[in-house]
Design a protein around this nucleic acid. Structure first.
Lengths: 127, 127
DNA sequence: TAACTGTACTATTTATATTGATACAGTTGT
DNA sequence: ACAACTGTATCAATATAAATAGTACAGTTA
């Protein structure tokens, strides 16, 4: 059902996350359809159930999946909308990054800068 | 001349980099002014010369500093312009990121996404 | 109660970032 | 030519963070 590349630098959970999003967007999976359990899928893919869970939680955060403890994880009743909204926002980020790169800003610094911005947790100030 | 916070999570070279940019932008340092040598400044700050060099190289990449092997490192003749242009571009990136965060996109995913975009070097594809 | 489900917490492994040690090469003035 | 400076490149060591796994817990269902 899911194919993933273990040689890729892209984390397993990220691959899973994207696969499911793509399937939901393409209509391969129906709304409210039950996803395989974290253990089932984990075993099938040869990874730890927690790795699967991480992907499921990311999807849940995006309202693409909802989980019920004891019952299972399911695709959301209303799909596609959330996905498009986020894709739009991400494209905006991508455009800004590309523009910066095109103007000669080093990739490493952009990454550094992004990290800095995203870690507002107990961040230190400079003079 | 330079003050930096060793307790900060921000790398030394990053602090140095920003300090010098700020000084150049504020006119504290004049165009073509000679910067302390990597060894001098390294010793003064109690860090490895390579750490200073890293900051200098970042500044050189930004055309804020130019270095001549055997002679030294100097502030560029034409300052401020480059700095402002880049600041503008970075602010655009920051705005896009903030918007995404505000809409609920997880910081970790944004970071992941950014990494993905910036590493077009020998990157792996997903299905 | 037994077999499933998701979830939380903690370790372990792995990758990456940061800093340091060392060696090399160019410039300058004597 | 030489001594004392300069930047630079390469590699090693360390520190930090990310990714995955192990284990235990709690809810659901039949």
């Amino acid at each position: 059902m899911f194919t993933l590349d273990y040689q890729s630098r892209m984390p397993i959970y990220e691959q899973l996350y994207r696969s499911i999003i793509k399937m939901a967007a393409l209509g391969v999976m129906a709304p409210n359809e039950k996803l395989p359990s974290v253990r089932m899928l984990g075993q099938q893919l040869g990874v730890n159930p927690n790795t699967v869970q991480k992907a499921y939680q990311m999807l849940e955060r995006d309202r693409i999946v909802y989980s019920v403890p004891g019952k299972g994880s399911f695709l959301s009743p209303d799909l596609s909308r959330v996905d498009l909204k986020k894709a739009e926002l991400l494209e905006k980020v991508a455009a800004a990054l590309r523009e910066a790169v095109d103007h000669g800003v080093e990739r490493s610094e952009l990454l550094q800068y992004t990290k800095q911005l995203l870690n507002i947790e107990s961040a230190g100030e400079n003079t």
